[in-house]
Design a protein around this nucleic acid. Structure first.
Lengths: 165, 165
DNA sequence: CGGTATCCCATTTGATACTG
DNA sequence: CAGTATCAAATGGGATACCG
């Protein structure tokens, strides 16, 4: 399968990956969450080549994750800001941050510490079930396909498959 | 900057991306969480080319995320199982699933529903602060670098930078 | 500052065939 | 079943130069 068709799969994970799964893209988003807004900030922050950065920013804007606005006050100043859709990616960043802290940290400990402003605690977000409040463990979750026994099989063009996930 | 050196950055997000940021890799992991264990299951599940799959599986095993075991009972049968380190990636998958459900779903609704076995509820995990129990919003979090004002600047070889994030 | 344009090499990929 | 081997084609990526 071509990567371009991954976004067409009937799977939210695949669709998400098709948009933010590109490696530099997530790094750009990390910077966005750290408050970066300008082209050159992203460039130095991520170390990405300028032409690639340009292309990735354009894609993020096209996908409604960043919005490109002319900054007030200074003329010719452009800012890229996270939209609601973009801000909603925060759990993804946090999940990576946390996993990295847990499994990839060096002897100095986590490079970054998070503080929850509203309660003042130095903390790391955890995933819970909103119904019962318990921590989520992978083994406790069951995934149910939308249409359990109804497999749509398309006429099969080449290696084109459908994945009902 | 070369992508290979991203893993060396002093940033947990970057380090995590260096390992699981590859596009097919996350798709393989999605399948792993859905219970897939065999080479061919992954192959049909993801649609990835066999040689690439082979290479990705090897990397995942090398990184301690999957373990390659000879299945008992059937001879010559290999299984790839999530290790503890791999299972710990679950929040990442869920975060993607949820974002995709929210922002990329078609008119049929989410392709997959999650059920929390322990409480029986059809649910979607949320991120909360373990201290105060409140939902986490990006704006409520502040990130503090480990060594706030101490910037190490290396002799600068080529475009090599350091990012203290 | 905020990009585009271009060049050109390195890597990835997909398909296919083959092996123990 | 679980891969390897091979190879052509596409893509990605870095450097650099240039523009409004």
């Amino acid at each position: 399968m071509r990567w371009d068709s991954v976004g067409d799969l009937n799977c939210s994970v695949a669709r998400t990956l098709a948009i933010v799964g590109e490696r530099w893209t997530m790094l750009i988003l990390r910077d966005a969450f750290l408050g970066h807004r300008r082209f050159d900030e992203f460039q130095t922050g991520t170390g990405i080549a300028r032409n690639i950065l340009s292309s990735r920013l354009r894609a993020l804007v096209a996908n409604g994750i960043l919005e490109r606005v002319k900054a007030e006050g200074e003329v010719g100043r452009i800012e890229y800001r996270l939209t609601k859709k973009g801000i909603d990616l925060y759990p993804l960043i946090v999940a990576m941050l946390k996993w990295g802290d847990t499994w990839l940290a060096d002897e100095h400990g986590p490079p970054l510490t998070l503080i929850h402003r509203t309660c003042g605690a130095r903390t790391t977000p955890v995933m819970v079930c909103p119904q019962c409040g318990q921590h989520i463990a992978a083994r406790d979750m069951v995934a149910i396909p939308r249409r359990p026994a109804h497999h749509v099989r398309r006429p099969a063009r080449g290696t084109h498959r459908q994945a009902s996930r």
